[in-house]
């Protein structure tokens, strides 16, 4: 079945528009602009979060940053637990090697 006219029109426009747009997006200038935009956005969000945090703390309420700090602390604990597990595995492996090499003596 033949393609509808609207689809043919879209394809024709896309063929003209896509390549230059693709080239423009790969331009280092565009990448720099996006990076700068991201840095500005991050700074603005940090400033807003500080203001909100002050307001919430004045009312003795926890802020989003407090929740994030707690979750990062939990993540830190999980990492320590993983490290302990890893050490335990290594220790058990060494013990097993000693048992094998010791001929039961």
């Amino acid at each position: 079945m033949a393609q509808p006219l609207w689809k043919k029109t879209y394809d024709a426009v896309e063929q003209q528009v896509a390549p230059p747009l693709q080239k423009a997006m790969g331009n280092p200038g565009v990448i720099d602009a996006i990076s700068l935009g991201r840095a500005v956005q991050r700074r603005a969000m940090d400033d807003a979060a500080t203001l909100i945090k002050r307001g919430l703390h004045a009312m003795n309420l926890p802020s989003g940053t407090d929740v994030r700090d707690v979750s990062n602390q939990i993540a830190g604990l999980e990492r320590q637990l993983r490290l302990l597990n890893k050490r335990l595995d290594e220790f058990e492996a060494k013990l097993a090697a000693l048992d094998d090499g010791g001929d039961g003596r």
């Binding site: 879209y10 747009l21 693709q22």
Partner: peptide, 17 residues
């Protein structure tokens, strides 16, 4: 997605067709 900026739109247009 920025590698092919119109790919998402084209995929939806193709889906419609």
């Amino acid at each position: 997605r920025s590698l092919t900026p119109v790919a998402e739109l084209s995929a939806n247009v193709n889906l419609l067709a």
